[in-house]
Design a protein around this nucleic acid. Sequence first.
RNA 1: GGCGCCGUAGCCAAGUGGCUAAGGCAUCGGAUUGCAAAUCCGACAUCGUGAGUUCGACUCUCACCGGCGCCUCCA
Length: 575
Amino acid sequence: MPAASQTQSTAVELSAPHPTLTVYNTLSKKKEPFRTVEEGKVGIYLCGPTVYDKAHIGHMVGPVIFDCIKRYLKYCGYHVTWVVNITDVDDKLINKANDRGITMLEVAEENIADYNGNLAALGVDQIDHFPRATECMPEIIAIVQSLIDSGYAYESEGDVYFDVTKDREYGKLSNRSLDQVQGDGGGGAERKRSSADFALWKSAKPGEPAWDSPWAKGRPGWHIECSAMSKKLLGETFDIHGGGLDLVFPHHENEIAQSECCHGKTFATYWAHNGLLRKDSESGKIGGGGASEKMSRSKGAGGLATLIAKQGGERIRFFLLRTHYRSTVLFSEEAIEEAAIGLESFYRLFKRYHRITKGDFYHLQARAHRTEGDTQSTGNAALDAAAACKAKFIAAMDDDFNTGGAIGELFELAKIANRYCDEHNLEGGGADNATIGDLTLLMATIKELSNILGIFLQPPALPGGSATDELLSKVMPLVIELRAEARAAKNFAVADAIRDGLAPTGVKLEDRAGGTEWTGGGEGAIDKVMAMLIDLRQTSRKNKDFKTSDAIRDRLAAVGVILEDRSGGTEWTRA
RNA sequence: GGCGCCGUAGCCAAGUGGCUAAGGCAUCGGAUUGCAAAUCCGACAUCGUGAGUUCGACUCUCACCGGCGCCUCCA
């Protein structure tokens, strides 16, 4: 078999292709029909962080898209195992530990906690295994030994290097030939046979964390831990290997080299690389084209936890999912806030659904698996339109997990549901069992599809809302009541003064068929609301509208707020 | 220098060899509202430039211009 012998890695036999799902493969630079190593099962390995510092938003792109990928593959009926590794031994960790006078393990623990908190906030909960390099030393050493035994690696003064000249296929992922990767050789150049060789094992200097090995006491090189962890949890050949585009070379190239030389067969069938985030330093400027800078912890990027605290995880997830995962994304808080506006319209729809049906969107039962045969017309225009949206949503996801296109359909679905409410006057008495049933079907479709994206799984925790002041919740009904009375008396000046006066506090009023609703009101809103009321009372007194001014004081007293008129103005206190 | 990516409306962003080029934000009309808000309806792009292939290209090829990535650690 002369032709086949040109490749040392024998291709493994794959399942029949999925009829519609295609996945882009960095290895072939094409979208390919999706086939699996084992029928009905998918193994995914995503390169996680080296935990030497806090995460930045760029670290979430991979986890978020793969979280969706797993959800979608499950939806398509696959059984999926997803591994995200933690690299917790590395030069940078050692340096960090030395700088701070703590152990490498302590540095790792701190940043792993940060990372896990970030994942949880963004709704990434599909990861099955979280292996750590330091927990896989026997497996790492076994692979290194095997590579030495088969002549692909050599020991040199206690270090072990992979001999790239022995690997005929070296460079196939990043599309470069050996003479193109002859750099300065990096650290330990004098111990290498070729400058492109890379370390599988690094002997320890005094004081460095070290593990016993057949060579010198030391630690694994970068790259090798992924080969070991993926083998341990997913086998010698698995389906999808993911990571940031910046990992293609040298990290993934070296992983392939190690694993395929060690096992003599395909390492991963599909290589899926997400695009990188850039920080938009000129956001807000007209005309775009402004400079943007690379996100990198070495350049001080970080603060993801702070960003989450401010914006909330769902906004960030939604922002990331609006763009195809392979694109470069310009990130700025303004961009996140713009995405959030779209998100809010969904939250409003969910509330509308609740007003009409008393049902909770978040508790709707939705289909968990795709069904191809439910496209026959129902004779109901709204339901038919929704079915068409769903079909387009699925087609988008089938096309290399095109979440951006899928989200467009979600907006369309929201419009269909809102229109249905309008056309059938569901908030003005048009609701009956039939219309409520149809609306619920529409909402369940939104639930089914948003479940795939991992959004709207539960009411958003942040921002603002959850921390609403208890007193504010008591005062607002009273404010609304005052305004309702003013409106009933056609005293629109007072009614509008209340609503307009509330605007700067972040509290919004919306008049609905069933009464006025209020939303918003974050930290400090209560003080501003009280100031508005005091101001309104002053104005009323000035206008001899004592009915209003007295009502304000009396009703505030009823909820435990006392107003005291002093020479310098009115002060309020909690009783 | 080597390898590669991108350029769609004011902004963000899907998509396709030929029917109306998704969707979101913003803007402008209209319905609705006491006025708003929300919601709905409508308006708003010929797809960086030039050439080629083709009956036909925004979609394929080439050139150019303009952004960007990797080649050192990096999600």
